[in-house]
Simulated scan of single mutants.
Amino acid sequence: MDDIRKRFSKFWGKTNTLMMVKPTPPFDFLMQIPEKFQNCLKHLEQSQKHQNIQDSETSMFLKNHGFDSVMDASLEKQLQAWKENPTWVDHPPEIKVSVPKGSLCNLNVKFEVGLPPDAVYNIVTDPENKRVFKNIKEVISRRVMVNEGQRQVVEVEQAALWRFLWWSGVMLVHVFVDQNRKDHTVKFKQGKAGFMKRFEGAWKIDSNFVDKDHSFPFEPKTITDYELCSNGKGRIGSVVHLQQLVEPALLPPPPISWYLRGITTRTVEMLITDLRSEAARIRGVEHVDFVAEFHKSHLDCVDSTKSYPGEKLKERWHERRKMRRHKRKRLPPL
């Protein structure tokens, strides 16, 4: 019995000694978890209170200035930078024309616009953009099929103007448009088949940091970084990519297909001109004859086929008609 008591006393003494020893680092970390968890909760509560105060101040600012969202306020700030410095030079667009088998043409266009991507997106997706684009005569119907906030799918039927040699008229175009403000894309595809068998394409609008040279030696990658580097004065422009495939229900033979390809290209050129003209108006620039300047510029146009220029073809047809009339006049009377 005494032997058992002695053994128990030794064991209890060792246990007390172990409890008095300072914990090793792993056990020390475990003992600090509750304290760190409490500090984390306090930090989250303080951050939430600060965020609530900022949201309240932002909401009050938007309400006082008539903005519907933070996005609208940000766009207005970017537009203000353009109004303070509206200097901008529109360079000729890059237009590449290819002819996939069975189609009339496939256009790939790249050009710059002196406006932020949100502003350009607003112009392209505006239900009343016939005010801007002269080739749209009338919007017959417009129905929103999907509305997910920043993304919408819209069914549109409109009357587009066309001109071929001495004739002109109106062509009905029925398309489904998938427009997404989050990535500034607008995809369109023909619905009802008519004069066109396939008519589809997409817009893609990217940011262009116009004044990024002022932020040297820093190279901003995001709009937030760009605004910090330029002290909020840096202008944001747009790089616009447009891809468009045109395939008529009945593909005409050359030289008519060459001429129609030229008409399609010039229609896109005029669309770009109208868009840039509207951008200049928004920037507050005085009226500029963009059409005259556009025809003076030389387009970087690459055609994968040996297409015949439409204007020369038209002149050639005029000469042939004159020759026929001249021959008729020279025929001797019967």
Rank of each mutant, 00 (worst) to 15 (best):
N39W: 05
I236D: 06
K63I: 06
P34V: 04
V109P: 04
F29I: 11
M31R: 13
A81T: 15
K187G: 05
S168W: 07
H184A: 07
H298E: 14
M145P: 03
P26A: 07
L172N: 13
R283L: 02
I272F: 00
V288C: 03
N129K: 09
F209H: 01
P309Y: 03
K134A: 08
S56T: 15
P254Q: 11
R163V: 12
Q179G: 03
M171E: 10
D28L: 12
L107I: 14
I136R: 07
G66L: 05
V97F: 03
E227D: 13
P93V: 10
H43Q: 14
K327E: 15
M270A: 12
G149D: 00
Q152D: 07
P217M: 04
Q244K: 10
P255V: 04
M145Y: 01
H326E: 15
R181M: 15
S141N: 12
E155A: 12
S141Q: 09
M270C: 08
T87A: 08
V153A: 05
L115P: 09
Q48L: 11
D118G: 09
Q54M: 11
P100V: 02
R320D: 10
G191N: 08
F294R: 10
K130I: 01
K314W: 06
M145E: 14
W88H: 11
E157H: 02
H295I: 11
E128S: 12
F176V: 13
R181A: 15
S207K: 12
M323N: 13
Q48I: 11
G237L: 04
F111D: 02
I140E: 13
L30N: 01
R261A: 14
V268F: 00
S207R: 12
P332W: 01
P255H: 02
S238T: 05
V268P: 05
I272A: 04
N16A: 12
F27D: 02
D72A: 15
G114P: 09
S297M: 08
M60V: 11
R181H: 13
K110W: 06
